[in-house]
Design a protein around this nucleic acid. Structure first.
Lengths: 251, 251
DNA sequence: GTATTTAGTGTAAAAACAACACTACGGTAA
DNA sequence: TTACCGTAGTGTTGTTTTTACACTAAATAC
């Protein structure tokens, strides 16, 4: 058997879930499809993988072709292969995700994309194929990641305020954080460089600007350290209680 | 386009990484290949996916065909798609992993497997294809999982001693744990039922037997609670220090 | 100069974690 | 029957981490 029977072959694609952050909102990059099926619908930027192409390479290429984004670090999340997920036949897709600073990139859609656009994640509800499911899986991954690595820095401009960082964390975790505790924790990680500058032209006390210390981060990561940010116990207990209540038969 | 151009099609398979625990050792289920390529070599139980078959279904079917294991819960881990990972052509594989009680199953190899056998994970070093890489990815996943869920119970017989449970955790995490702290932590989770029985016929003080309380576990899981077991700070610091030292230029 | 808005700061109580050493209880063998 | 061997089992204390919580500071707008 030097070649595989066609019986074992299927089409497969990569889909990219790209998160960004802007105006206090967590966003995701979508394309408007210019091709059947789901022509005119919003979808994750994804397309077929070439037979001689590694998966990671394909994800990068497809993302660039459809949106113009280049040099983005992509991470594999999960593979979706329900037999009926594509109306035209069997298609398996490998989902990738990434975090980018929206301001760093210009969107230049091409190929099957009519348009590429950032969408608030809270407003996305109807996507082509099973892309909502894929999006959810990646959002879960992001939530996990944010507790493990200081991912915030990937999403913010090079200089940022602690409040902006906190808002980002709150958007990802979909919870509120205590300002003082958040600052204590973040600063104790020693990953921020205090630029000793402040905002300008804001109609209130201006905030200090910070920068991410990537060298220190790389060093810490190599040592296998963690960067955890937990939900408060009170909230956890509350959530648990609410859940229990919900499950109880109304008597 | 009602069918996909063959250009976009590739062969794809599922590979299963099945962990078990026996005689204080973490084990993995391997088959001896009876078919080229790598005929006669040990490999993960994996095979092609049928075109009309969901991935999870395929993983289950393949596992049963190759090893005789049935009704095993499998979880998708990662997809491997390097273009050169199979000597005969492009093959993408989706890796699944699972935890089983070795004593629950009889191995009945069939199909391309000459033999199916449990191997101590510490002694596995040469596998067909890129299966070592796949194994490592799944082992990492297991390490993560053990800190998040009380997975130990999946691997032990229905009744077990706390010492056995501790040994299991130590094997997975590749570290030592403090006996008293471990017991305190495990018991405080309230997931164990004290059977009020003890071992029999052992040449030393017999240990109490416990059972896993699955109902409570399901309830806690639904509430989103965590079951963490951390490495000691001392060890973490030591590891970090060792790492730093390693990186320093010898001067 | 007063109102408005966001920035920034400290402490104390509670909880979790880490370190640590001896007694208890079987069987076995002299 | 007694001594011994091997594993089971058990509490306390100091340290660190986490949580909860409320006021002052600095800029602009009117």
């Amino acid at each position: 058997m030097t070649e595989f029977n066609d019986f074992f072959k299927s089409a497969f694609t990569v889909d990219n879930v790209i998160f960004g952050f802007d105006e206090g909102d967590l966003k995701i990059l979508l394309i408007k499809r210019g091709e059947a099926p789901y022509k005119g619908k919003w979808a994750l930027p994804g397309y077929f993988v070439y037979p001689n192409e590694d998966l990671d390479t394909a994800a990068k290429r497809v993302l660039e072709e459809l949106t113009g984004l280049r040099n983005v670090y992509l991470e594999q999340v999960q593979t979706f292969g329900a037999t009926n997920r594509h109306p035209f036949g069997r298609v398996i897709t490998i989902a990738y995700f990434s975090l980018v600073k929206i301001s760093d990139y210009n969107l230049q859609p091409a190929s099957i994309a009519q348009k590429a656009q950032w969408h608030s994640i809270s407003k996305v509800n109807d996507l082509a194929f099973d892309h909502i499911e894929i999006l959810n899986a990646c959002f879960q991954r992001l939530k996990w990641l944010v507790r493990t690595r200081p991912v915030g820095f990937e999403l913010l401009p090079p200089q940022f305020t602690l409040t902006a960082l906190q808002h980002l964390y709150e958007a990802i975790l979909e919870t509120d954080l205590d300002k003082r505790n958040f600052r204590k924790k973040i600063l104790s990680m020693n990953l921020l460089i205090d630029l000793e500058q402040t905002q300008e032209g804001v109609a209130h006390r201006p905030a200090r600007l910070y920068q991410f210390d990537r060298d220190k981060y790389d060093q810490f990561r190599a040592e296998g350290l963690n960067f955890e940010l937990k939900e408060s116990k009170k909230k956890e207990a509350k959530r648990a209680a609410a859940h229990r209540k919900m499950l109880q038969p109304s008597s």
